[in-house]
Design a protein around this nucleic acid. Structure first.
Lengths: 193, 193, 193, 193
DNA sequence: GTTTAAACGAGACGGTACGTCTCGTCTTCCC
DNA sequence: GGGAAGACGAGACGTACCGTCTCGTTTAAAC
């Protein structure tokens, strides 16, 4: 009935669950990870999991947020295109690393049938990164390096979408070559004349 | 052991299964559809399903291919941007229609943990449409309406990716406004000078 | 992997399963009873059955043991032949009652292809009754009413075997007339001279 | 609908089915033999089996009848007890041979839930042998070697029942020692005084 | 320092769906 | 038209997880 009291929560168990979830997701793949498996690996009762998380996706989401933190500062060398390439290269690497690719595609898959997960992904994963990028773009706009009649967020979308497109549709591998292409095409139209 | 003989296959059962799968996917959602449910609805033994399809995603994929057919010709009015907007508007509508959105996001979700499904989606759904679009773009390139130093397929990616991005990441609704923005930005850089 | 812990066992479920098994065996017949049917009738998950019993025969065996209990004392009026007729008449009745005949022949049939069941039938059903009868016979032997150069257990076999013979081979109906015949023939040779 | 016409029946198929049934019953055990397995082994369509036999037990029964034939003459050396021991020893051997024991116990098990099988076993297996034995006993009765106020068939029952008892109830192994005991006890009462 | 209530591990429970197996029927094509 | 081959509807099999529900057993705040 009543909600559990977070003050009395056992941090050791919480960590064990997050760790177990991450490990299992690395060893198998998101779709094959089960609540039961996480509980067993973490040495934890199933109830303890269900008390604090509604789904395995929620656990992984928290695990990622917990483990990630920071590192999402956007570089500013003055050269917007170079900075973007720099940052987007990291995304390419994440999408090409089997381990983190597993998390990401699994979570996005789960989001397709679970609005809560969808919202959490946007709020905690996507939105913050978009904002960092948008902020850097705004600086470039003020510096006259980028058209300023377009919302920065829309530019972010235009740049990152092709990476997600290949990543999720599995048409072609996400790659640095793709990156160059995207930047070339986008900035052909974005550069003020 | 041996593969079943397709010549002896019962077409009535095949149709019943495809129909049942589509209906159930409309009434509930892809993730909640089960092999058992399809069998019951189709009035068919489970073995008959497993004999011909490896997964519910495969059934739906075949159902979509079977039901779709045609309709994939790309208009050519001479105005490439108008033609693209026309065609992409249909995609926006598909992504906004609860029924077909269910199929699509469900299948793409399934593809994240099943390479066979991923391949089938690319081969039978994505690739044909990409090609139609690319062909239209090539005409425009030859007509000097579009930069011809860029592969048509890459342009397709640049245009469609933002739609999939919003559709799968659930950041913002896919919309016609988004369409205009994409076209505006893309063609700012794609128009030969 | 590990065995389940009997302390945590739910007695209500156990009873429901035993009852359901007995009822179904009465309504249909042993061969038509299924694990699934028992689970449904008992309002119980199939796993709960498989956790505690290896087969439907094992369930019925436990049900019979549980429901039977007592009633297995052998009368002793001083007249060994009368006492035997009395007791054996009960067996005749069991073999002629459609309900209990179903259990018994079904279980014995199951025993033909399942050594565990065979052992359980001997240990928990047959052996105890044989012993009761043998004990009564030993008293008669000490009283000089029955030859004492023959093991009591062998006499029990000689007496009961013809009942089982007709019951399992379905040659002729088991009957009280048969009983008189058996006793007459057996005691013609068993009476000391 | 209509009965199949036995004249057009393929004897090769019939033989192949009987042989396959016997072989499978030897390799595995009666309970594990399936119609499907027999059809495959015999290189025969399932329909061909179902056209001519109602159950696997019926097949085996026919196979046994077909293969057995004759050999069931009862010896007559003038010594009724010796002749009985001789004949019953063969039964003991059958019950102790893993292969034939499998057929017999399997068929008797099947008979418990299938009256047709039960009837067929009595008519084609049990009854003929009982009659042979009874005939020999009648000769002994006329020779004044056996009480003639008891039906020969009832004596047969008294003698053979204990063998079946041990065979089907698996209490103790059927053995030649048991035979001596039975004969000793029975003839103590059967010998005219 | 005890009390005490909530979180915990463990895992049994009622369920649902899985993918496989066998049943007995139906269909197709061959001889 | 019988037979081989095998697809079919049906449904039980035994397993895996689901999410809920007891069980004692810590464990940390309240007394």
């Amino acid at each position: 009935m009543a909600e559990p009291n977070p003050d009395r929560r056992n941090e050791r168990s919480r960590q064990a669950i997050l760790t177990a979830a991450l490990e299992l997701c690395q060893e198998q793949n998101f779709a094959k990870v089960t609540m039961e498996g996480i509980a067993k690996r973490a040495g934890v009762g199933k109830q303890t999991i269900y008390r604090w998380w509604p789904s395995k996706a929620a656990i992984l989401l928290e695990a990622l947020r917990d483990r990630a933190r920071a590192s999402d500062d956007f570089p500013d060398t003055g050269d917007i295109v170079a900075d973007l390439r720099d940052q987007m290269t990291q995304v390419v690497e994440v999408f090409n690393d089997p381990v983190s690719a597993g998390y990401n595609s699994g979570l996005i898959a789960a989001a397709q049938s679970d609005p809560d997960i969808a919202k959490a992904i946007v709020d905690f994963i996507v939105q913050p990164r978009v904002e960092h990028c948008a902020n850097r773009l705004k600086v470039a706009q003020q510096a006259g390096q980028v058209r300023d009649d377009v919302a920065a967020a829309d530019i972010v979308e235009l740049l990152y979408a092709p990476l997600y497109y290949r990543f999720l549709l599995h048409t072609r591998p996400v790659s640095v070559e793709q990156l160059d292409l995207i930047l070339e095409l986008a900035f052909a139209g974005l550069t003020p004349r």
